[in-house]
Amino acid sequence: MSSNLAIAMHVAKKELRVQIGYRNKFIADVLSHVIGIVPILLITLALSGSSLNDIDGITRANALFVFLGYAAFMAFGFGTPIMIYTGMAWGISEELQTGTIERNFLAPVSRHTIVAGIGIYYACLYAFHVTTLMILAFFLFPSTAEIPVGNLAVAGTAALGLIALSAGLGLSSAAMFLMIRDGSLFLLFVHRPFMILSGAIFLIELLPGPLKLIALVNPVAYGVDAFRWAFSGHGTLEDPWLEVGIVWAGALVAAIVGVIVLGRVIRRQSRTGELSRI
């Protein structure tokens, strides 16, 4: 039997083909992160008080701060309309509606592998978002061009850690989707809080006390901070490599929890018949 990874990659490739089939949505998925950053940058400019043809140093520093935070958060997955559900749950919601998820579950491969395969497609999409934003940064903020290799390693592992964290949470969000057949709650209760409490677009220091505490147990915050440190030299939380470790630890926990939760939900729904309603 082929390895689980090979099967998951195969599922991911299928997902890419299917998504390309929905052409307009696919184009939005691929490009909207670039459009998404425009209002955030404009708000930053406006709040910093510079005009567009006369940007001062402080504004530039603020804009870079926000840009890097946003780019890092893209790794966690927020750049596209799909994020209403977080990637995997989106894929699953579509397959539930079309009826193909049942057909997939008839194959002699682990059902987690099928779900994870859908997740790989989205992970690649997020990696693409981060990469393209960093290419954009190269032109917008020429200073990011001369970065030591060690810093790049921090940025890379931080971004990959955030993607892994997103995939782990994706398993739980897929499970949640199966249970309530709606992903918007996930957006409301998980994704937005993760965004606001991550320091992606403003300093965690600026949050009210209790929220600051919550933000400090959010692994995404450390990933964002490490990523930003790598390109700007400014970090606010811990040593960058320690931060990378925290992100990966979070990713591991999320993956374990996700595997267990999804397994339970699938089993439960095999009993109630909800899994095979079509």
């Binding site: 082929s2 195969h10 083909r17 079309t98 009826g99 193909t100 057909r103 194959a107 079509i278």
Partner: peptide, 24 residues
């Protein structure tokens, strides 16, 4: 539930290839 169990956004060949690979 035959016709609901294949991917409409793929070709017939891609469907067969996809499911074939799931069965090794």
């Amino acid at each position: 539930r035959g016709e609901r169990s294949v991917y409409w956004r793929l070709s017939g060949r891609q469907n067969l290839a996809y499911f074939g690979r799931l069965y090794d």
